[in-house]
Structures are given as C-alpha cells and as structure tokens.
Design a binder for these strands. Structure first.
Length: 359
DNA sequence: TCTGGGGTCCTAGGACCC
DNA sequence: TCTGGGGTCCTAGGACCC
C-alpha cells in the first residue's frame, strides 16, 4: 500500500529554534523579545544567531550585529549562545523524525531536515510530524512539501509559523516566479547581482534565461545549476547517509584588532590547540592545515592557504606557524582561523556523502 | 551599524608529467 | 629546436549555507 503511494519530500524547519529552546528553560521569557548571540554582551563584536518573533517586530534578524540589535530592541533580553543545549534539543527532534513511519531523514543542520515519505496525503503526514515533535520536545515547526528537494525547501517559508505549504511543478512558477533570485537556496547577494547585470531579476527570468549567457557568466556547471534551481527542478532523493566532516576549524574575531606579531602567534597557537582537540576526538589522520585571515578595517575577504601535513601534533603546529609567517605585517588583523582537513574514511569517498551539487 | 563561527563546494591557473 | 594536447595535483580565492 505505502509502497505504491506517491513519493514526497518534506522539509521540516523548527520555528525560531534557538530562541524557542531558551524560552523553554526560562518560561518567564515567553512572549518577550529575546535575542541570542555571541556571549550575550551587546558591546562586543558579535552577531545575532536567532531572534524571537517578538524581537523581529523591532527589525532584529539573524546575522545582524548584536550592537545594532540591542539598539533596535532596547528592552530585549540578550542571551549568550549555548551550543550544547541546542545540540541536545536538535538530537531529540531528529530522533522524533526518524520514528515517523517509512521516513528517510536527511539532517541539514541543528534545526532542519528533509524527510522522504510515501503518502497519499502529505499535509496530513506533515501535521502528524508537527504534533510528534511538539509532544516530545515542546518545539513548533513548519513543514514544506515538495516533489523535489528544492521545492520542499522553498515551500517551508510560506508555511511559517507552525504551518505547511506545498510547492510542486504545478504551482512553482506561479508562487515563486515574480520573486527575486536571491530567495533561491544557493543564490546569495553576489550571484544575484551578477544575474541582475544580465537583466535577470526574478526567478521566472532565471528559469527562462539563455543558456549561453549563464554559461559565459558562471561556467557550464554552475550556470546550468542556477537555471535548474530557478525551475525548482533537481533531485527528489532524500539521502540518510551519515554526514562525515571533511575537517574541523576554529576561528576568532578579536575584540580589538591585533597588530603585534607575538600576539598573533599566540592566538594561532591557541587555535591550533583547539583544533587538535577536535580532530583527536575523530581519530582520523590530518591531511592538510589551513589558515584564514581577515584584515581590518574593510577587507572583508578571506584568504586561505593550504599546505600538506602529516598527522602529528608538532607537525600541524609547525606547519600552521609557517603559514602565520605569511600574514602581512603591520596590517591590523580582525579575524584568525585555523582549519585541519582529515582523510575521509573509505566508505565516505566518491560521492557517498551528501553534497550540495547532488541536489 | 559595521558585520560570528562552523562548515561545504566550485573555479582559475600554475606546475608537472607524458 | 620548437612545439601540441591531455591529464592530474595543488594553491588561492570566491560564494554560499545554517
């Protein structure tokens, strides 16, 4: 019976996840503007991770500097990010999703996942999922329903909060066609500007854009990929292969920009120590280390240097310090990051792990 | 108002080999 | 002596996501 029912992709997305988790353990915050970001200190360099719906009414949103957010919503409660708490809550949610009958679950992040299901009534299935998640975790979620991954993902926003919405080949262009290309998942500000230079402003315009124009601008792979995104086409396969990290990195934004060589070197050593801990927990060999630097004041670009290394703590440290020598002297340093790449296990090679290009 | 921290993937171009 | 073309590996840089 279920084997013959049509296949659907459900995209489950928790509503204001981080803020909701905080409100659960501090019930007195319910109904108030709540902002979570950084160490909870709006005088520091940090950004908003999540704002409650009440805080959003003041114009506060994710990614906004905490300082600005505090000014916009002066009465908001500002809390520090507590990653372990969100990881634990997320695990409960994902466990609930995996219990749903016949569901294949692909986790996308702390607060969202794809479900592959077979059902005659995806809306009813979605409401069962919402009820199960609420019963177990007291958290609300919205569910996008689609005939492809991309359509399900885009549908979720129309169902928020606590609702569902269905996007298929039938209504995709009707709903999304007049919207800006930046609303597509994978099109950001840079790509949307390059598209605009070719008079491609809307999803419909991109869906019908000249193939040659897109290939000339973005190359054969990405050019066609963007047009496919605008059509909502692509894979409808939900892949529950466990995710395997390619590497681990640690980075810090300095509260005051660093100039002194000794301070920069010490910061690098601290970051290496943290990264070594993270990768030691995985027990996989390191095959490369990299450095990420951001200079102040306006250089927003990121430089990454990669070099081969072998898995040996002293080697990783020594190779990282060689990269530190490449940091331009006398230039105020705002951010420093260290990243180690690990060898992939045999069973995770060659496309077995989920990748964005697979969508 | 001045932008976190954790990741992934794609492309260009140089070096090197046959 | 000067030269083609293909393939692979590596680094640097860019863009995007949650």
């Amino acid at each position: 019976m279920t084997g013959h029912a049509p296949a659907w992709v459900l995209h489950v997305d928790l509503d204001q996840f981080i803020a909701a988790v905080e409100v659960l353990r501090r019930p007195e915050l319910a109904g108030k503007p709540v902002i979570v970001g950084g160490r909870g200190d709006p005088t520091e360099r940090a950004v908003v991770s999540t704002a409650s719906y009440e805080a959003r009414e003041f114009g506060v949103g994710s990614g906004m500097p905490l300082r600005i957010a505090a000014r916009k919503a002066p009465d908001a409660v500002i809390l520090p990010v507590d990653a372990p708490a969100y990881t634990a809550a997320s695990a409960e949610v994902m466990a609930t999703l995996r219990e749903q009958p016949g569901a294949i679950v692909q986790v996308l992040g702390w607060d969202e996942a794809f479900l592959g299901v077979r059902t005659e009534d995806p809306e009813a299935y979605a409401r069962h999922v919402q009820a199960a998640v609420l019963a177990r975790t007291r958290l609300h979620c919205s569910v996008g329903i689609g005939d492809t991954l991309v359509r399900a993902k885009n549908a979720t926003g129309f169902g928020k909060p606590r609702g569902t919405f269905r996007l298929t080949e039938v209504n995709w262009l009707g709903v999304m066609g007049d919207r800006p290309t930046m609303e597509l998942w994978g099109v950001g500000s840079k790509i949307s500007k390059r598209l605009a230079a070719h008079d491609i402003l809307t999803v419909a315009q991109l869906a019908h854009a000249d193939e040659a124009v897109l290939i000339a601008e973005f190359g054969p792979r990405m050019g066609l990929w963007y047009r496919q995104l605008a059509r909502g086409d692509g894979s409808s396969v939900v892949d529950d292969t466990p995710w395997v990290a390619r590497g681990h990195g640690r980075e810090t934004t300095f509260q005051q920009d660093l100039v002194k060589r000794a301070e920069i070197e010490q910061a690098a050593r601290d970051l290496v120590a943290q990264v070594l801990e993270d990768i030691a927990a995985e027990g996989r060999p390191v095959v490369g280390v990299g450095l990420k630097v951001r200079y102040a004041p306006f250089s927003t670009k990121t430089l990454v240097h990669r070099i081969p290394a072998t898995f040996d703590r002293d080697t990783v440290l020594a190779e990282t310090m060689k990269l530190v020598e490449k940091i331009e002297p006398d230039r105020p340093l705002r951010l420093l990051g260290v990243r180690a790449e690990m060898a992939m296990p045999d069973d995770a090679r060659d496309g077995h792990t989920p990748t964005r290009s697979g969508w």
